[in-house]
Design a binder for these strands. Structure first.
Lengths: 258, 258
DNA sequence: CGACGACTTGACATCGATCAAGCGAGGTGG
DNA sequence: CCACCTCGCTTGATCGATGTCAAGTCGTCG
């Protein structure tokens, strides 16, 4: 992941990371929510749009400076939530793929004071927080859909945290890759090839490892035939088996066509 | 902690762990909430009590079997939330001291399917979930108090998770001890001596370490003069310094008397 | 007294971090 | 267009941190 072939802003060179700017806003989010409800919620949500924004290079947004006053929804590309620790290390607590809501949750409405970094090539839609709350109070079906979506994220995070605290590096890394695949599945892609624009140093800050060790873990995973790499992307040779071995629980199931 | 001197059910021998059975129910919880609001909420809460229960030895409660259908509030003693991982290891995700609500949160209302273990000597009060929701909808001030209390817990957990993923064993352990002190502070104790009934094997399952290594870490902390031990209890020689070094954030402040 | 559980300690193996060097692709400036 | 720089990744050598296995101590409980 983040291999040199993809360039400095890896995502910018990949079609799925720059496709969105001309599409209808919130397409990714609406597609995600469709996995949790048959009700079409696009029009309601689109009435809350306050603006859009694209990032051609990695761009941090600082909570303190009010950069995150609007609700941010990823249209395309990726972002992550991070914090600097007392020893100077950066910890990345969560990541966001297309359709994810970065800085709002009805489950835990308190201020997460974490900052967010938008990866180069990402584009986002901004929503009005007050209006969203209002809509959700009116529209119980939409509220319940969003709640189930948030719930799935929360449970996936719980599963990941458990692994990152207790398991060795290889299993942590595999589980993170499975989470990436899960995140991609949310927007209808059930990709063999898992692609994200994250650099190994960023993976390290998610995993609680060093970048050097992440590199070695990937090498070992390739050498033992567990994954195949092509530039920025990764493929499991037998994903089912890995999921079984790790007791991995999927939270974003592909939905039968209605 | 959990040193042999305290016996098999460590907590049972310590006065603060067996004091409650004859006191008014929910005394610990009400005392905690007093840190977040000047409003006295004892009578309202006590109207929800469905029963009480004491544990003379370590007792697991299985979510699957419906053992946790009521809301469980610790009167005295300790408990923790745990799950068994795919490799057979046990992970302990959170712990509960006197006054804590074990299996309910308004912030994240979804089912945490974790099981709970009540340490020997613990006694708990059971509340009616439906009634609590009802009360909170009626009583905005109580709802806001409880919400702030839950918020403090959530933020403390976030801080702990970060440390447990990224930091080495010694710092993890220190932070866990500070969290124990924080939990004790919630019920008005601002103890020099931090006392919990947890065994080293349990600390290990919280920290993502082995019991043997926890033992060595404690030895090193004593040898370097950072902590002093007396049987089951621990005291920091300079807590302020440790809190500063770890950038530890307290969430349960001692409240000025009103 | 004997069994047991929790903790301790030592020897050793493995995992992961650190430091340092090198490589290849892009980007930049001459 | 080429020379050079930077960035992300790789690799090797080495060190420290942590896990594993095994033996031993010390209380408690029956």
């Amino acid at each position: 992941m983040g291999h040199a072939k993809a360039g400095k802003n890896g995502a910018a060179l990949h079609p799925e990371a720059v496709a969105a700017p001309e599409t209808v806003p919130l397409a990714s989010l609406v597609s995600r929510l469709g996995k949790f409800s048959a009700v079409e919620s696009g029009d309601t949500l689109r009435s809350l749009v306050r603006g859009r924004r694209g990032y051609d290079r990695d761009t941090p947004a600082w909570a303190e400076r009010g950069d995150l006053a609007s609700i941010v929804v990823i249209e395309s590309g990726w972002a992550y939530k991070f914090a600097i620790m007392h020893d100077g290390r950066r910890h990345i607590a969560d990541f966001f793929g297309p359709g994810a809501i970065c800085n709002w949750s009805r489950l835990s409405r308190f201020e997460e004071q974490d900052d967010i970094l938008f990866k180069g090539g990402a584009s986002v839609t901004l929503l009005e927080p007050g209006l969203l709350d209002e809509k959700l109070n009116e529209d119980a079906s939409l509220a319940s859909t969003i709640k189930r979506h948030e719930l799935a994220r929360a449970m996936r995070t719980t599963q990941r945290i458990r692994a990152f605290i207790s398991l060795p590096a290889m299993e942590r890394t595999l589980l993170l890759l499975l989470d990436f695949a899960d995140e991609l599945r949310t927007v209808g892609k059930a990709p063999d090839w898992i692609h994200t624009p994250f650099a190994q140093a960023e993976l390290a800050d998610m995993l609680g490892l060093t970048a050097v060790h992440v590199s070695r873990v990937f090498k070992k995973l390739v050498d033992t035939g567990i994954i195949v790499r092509d530039g920025n992307s990764v493929r499991f040779t037998d994903r089912r088996r890995i999921e079984r071995d790790l007791a991995y629980r999927r939270f974003f199931q592909a939905r039968r066509s209605p």
